[in-house]
Nucleic acid binder design. Structure first.
Lengths: 236, 236
DNA sequence: CGCGGGTTTGAGGCGAGTCAATGAGAGTGG
DNA sequence: CCACTCTCATTGACTCGCCTCAAACCCGCG
């Protein structure tokens, strides 16, 4: 299996080894991996990426499907002049990189040091070809991404800067708050590129919310929401 | 079947009958309907909507899946104060209203008088439960919508007004041009709400493209692209 | 023909972007 | 343990692209 990895991962495996990431031993799919597919016969492998390391590029063949174990990932598209739109952030437990077609439509990078679990796309395809429950699960996961994208189109097309930031805070609060505190893994530029704003506009909105007592800081990326209701009111 | 329709369509069927739409006789799925599912046993019905008539509302139970036969449909979300984001336009041949979950996440309205073919969602679910090819087709269709949404997020978050209009024109040219002429079914406000712009900004961009000789008008909604290459250059 | 909705065009305002400087931590090495 | 550095974040001043408001125009349709 270690041999299979070096074959199939080629450049990425080499790069990751240079970066000092470990390759976890092969093991059967555990319950925790049920999000991708809780079925015997699927091989899950762990893999690690360093901060800002590319996991896959836009239009690259979609060979694997990933689940974040720890860390955080951004999926994005670029325009030719470098303008970037982040489509989604992937946090621990999230599955990403799932494609129905042959290629990844967004690139993916580790926001911070990140460990993922992955399975070969062909394994999933094969399982889906014989098991309608697997097929249904794949559809449902893609539909979940579509739901998020539809909500995000409304944000990008029609919300004001303050509404976008309020939406973002409530989303992150829901997805990664522990004990009412959230530790954002991403920088202001990432947030801006997710919300269709500049990093300065994001910073100004956060400062304004801080001044109004709606949130508290413990360092720029440790945020406590002090009044979710008022935040909801700011979110259209 | 007519009885089934009045039962299952309730208010919509009544409204449509008042509007004078016809209810087509039940018939087996034809080859043309293969986009939804070319399988024996699925019942397709035709239904018509008048200009601006609602086909289904946001968060309404997703009982049917639709395919445009003729006309055009807009799918959109609204903010509480009326701001609208159109997620996509559905043109003849397009399938819309397909959901993995229980409810429609966007509302749908006929842009002009429109005829659709529809099948019960439960029929598709049932077919997908026994036939992995049907299941695969449903997944692929949802993945296609996701691809469009991802491209559109990039447009809404990062493109300029002129780039958005150029992208729109190329999309419509690809999807509905006949003999290099496209007859837009939607008004400037719809285009603006699709592109995250105001109708005035859309109009100004089109006027500018006209002045540059990149497109020609035969009435405000009949457009000929005279230089696709320059339009591509304007689209980031 | 003559409405009337839809479109175009103009003038001015404003929200977010740009450019620039300062500030605050986190990590590093002496 | 502190000084240094470097990245990231904040804040300010100014600009600008798109929005708003308003008026004129143009067809398409009855």
């Amino acid at each position: 299996m270690a041999q299979m990895l070096t074959q199939t991962f080629n450049t990425r495996a080499i790069k990751t080894q240079i970066n000092g990431s470990k390759i976890a031993p092969v093991h059967p799919v555990s319950d925790q991996f049920g999000e991708i597919a809780g079925y015997v016969g699927l091989i899950a492998t762990e893999f690690s990426y360093r901060k800002d390391e590319e996991i896959y590029g836009e239009d690259e063949p979609a060979e694997y499907v990933y689940q974040v174990v720890s860390g955080a990932v951004r999926s994005y598209k670029l325009l030719s002049d470098g303008r970037r739109q982040i489509g989604s952030f992937h946090l621990p437990g999230d599955v990403f990189g799932l494609e129905s077609g042959p290629a990844h439509r967004l690139a993916a990078e580790a926001i911070i040091d990140t460990t993922v679990r992955l399975v070969k796309r062909s394994s999933l395809e094969k399982a889906a070809g014989t098991d309608v429950l697997v097929a249904r699960k794949l559809w449902t996961m893609t539909a979940g991404e579509l739901r998020h994208a539809e909500d995000h189109m409304l944000l990008l097309g029609r919300k004001t800067a303050m509404e976008r930031v309020a939406t973002f805070l409530l989303e992150m609060d829901r997805r990664l708050a522990v004990a009412s505190m959230m530790a954002l893994p991403m920088c202001r530029r990432d947030i801006g590129d997710y919300l269709g704003l500049t990093l300065e506009t994001v910073s100004r909105a956060l400062s304004q919310l801080h001044a109004q007592g709606i949130l508290g800081f413990s360092g720029a990326r440790q945020i406590v929401l002090r009044n979710r209701q008022r935040l909801h009111n700011l979110d259209a």
